[in-house]
Design a protein around this nucleic acid. Structure first.
Lengths: 165, 165
DNA sequence: CATGTAGTCGACTCTGTCAATCGACTTTGT
DNA sequence: ACAAAGTCGATTGACAGAGTCGACTACATG
């Protein structure tokens, strides 16, 4: 028995985290894979191919050579989580006969009273992810961190970041 | 690339279909595996083990010998889809750090602004499945079938033939 | 009480997907 | 031109999901 039937692939998760990191540090210009990998704890080599995919899909732009790296291709408020997840894992549907992007005829048509239910859940999830942008996530994250820092007591240094500068 | 990041296992799907069939024909007393398998087009041998699991979890009762078979252990309006799916696939969470039944500390705590979002989607899905009972599904199915029959009933079958008579 | 019917159980296979890694190539800055 | 950084695609290893099998046990009826 698995542990979840509602599953976001780690790839989708990593992609989201990477995009979030990029959104948080949007001002800094481009970030190297290493920086993102370290900040979000994602295997560097794996992240590499994720960023690549995201770039091909038009969400990121990259620069080679020294001082290169990745950056968002559009402002964070223009990118929804749904888009990113879809790039990584494909269309979202709880079961094939309900997908908006990849339907196929369900052999049970009339017999399948479940179809409506699956569609309902799909729509609910899609709606949430569709309306949440990375700007939203960044805002929430900042808020959460501030709260965290405050509750942890003054004088505490915050999360150690492998920052240069 | 997969085709869905929101996935109900076929086991969960089959279990739901079986329960639906049992609900639809609740009046008939118990049904044999064969009948359910045929009606819902589920591999007999596979269905067998699914029903078994459902029985162990207390949703079905069975009778051996001739005239045996499976039947619901409680009325359809007392069983939610969420329960059944959970029996088959375990707790539902888009990612481990959000599961209500199987949490584990997320190593990114503060850094993870995504957590809230995953939780949101989980709750949305859970809410839908929790409030939908098999009585609901049976009703919907009957309605869908009636509609289907009506539209099929009048008129003639579509003629793809170049020249009719 | 014999016997076929039906259910129970656990182990097993097979396939596909997912996560992750490598090696080599290309581009860019100095 | 050389090194640093990014790009690419192929490969791999592990594990979960889907479906199968064989044998065992219980029951109901002739």
């Amino acid at each position: 028995m698995a542990e979840a039937e509602l599953k976001i692939s780690t790839k989708g998760e990593y992609a989201s985290r990477a995009m979030l990191e990029l959104s948080l540090r949007h001002k800094e210009g481009s970030l190297h894979i290493k920086a993102i990998s370290a900040a979000q704890d994602i295997p560097e080599r794996f992240l590499e191919q994720i960023l690549l995919q995201l770039k091909r899909a038009g969400y990121l732009r990259s620069r080679k050579g020294p001082h290169g790296g990745y950056a968002l291709a559009k402002p964070p408020e223009m990118i929804s989580v749904a888009e990113v997840v879809r790039v990584m894992d494909g269309p979202l549907a709880p079961i094939d006969c309900v997908s908006v992007t990849a339907h196929q005829v369900c052999p049970h048509e009339d017999a399948c009273g479940l179809k409506g239910l699956w569609k309902e859940t799909r729509d609910a999830v899609a709606a949430i992810m569709e309306r949440t942008t990375f700007a939203d996530l960044a805002k929430r994250t900042l808020a959460a961190r501030a709260k965290f820092a405050a509750s942890k007591g003054r004088g505490f240094r915050r999360t150690a970041r492998p920052s240069g500068a």
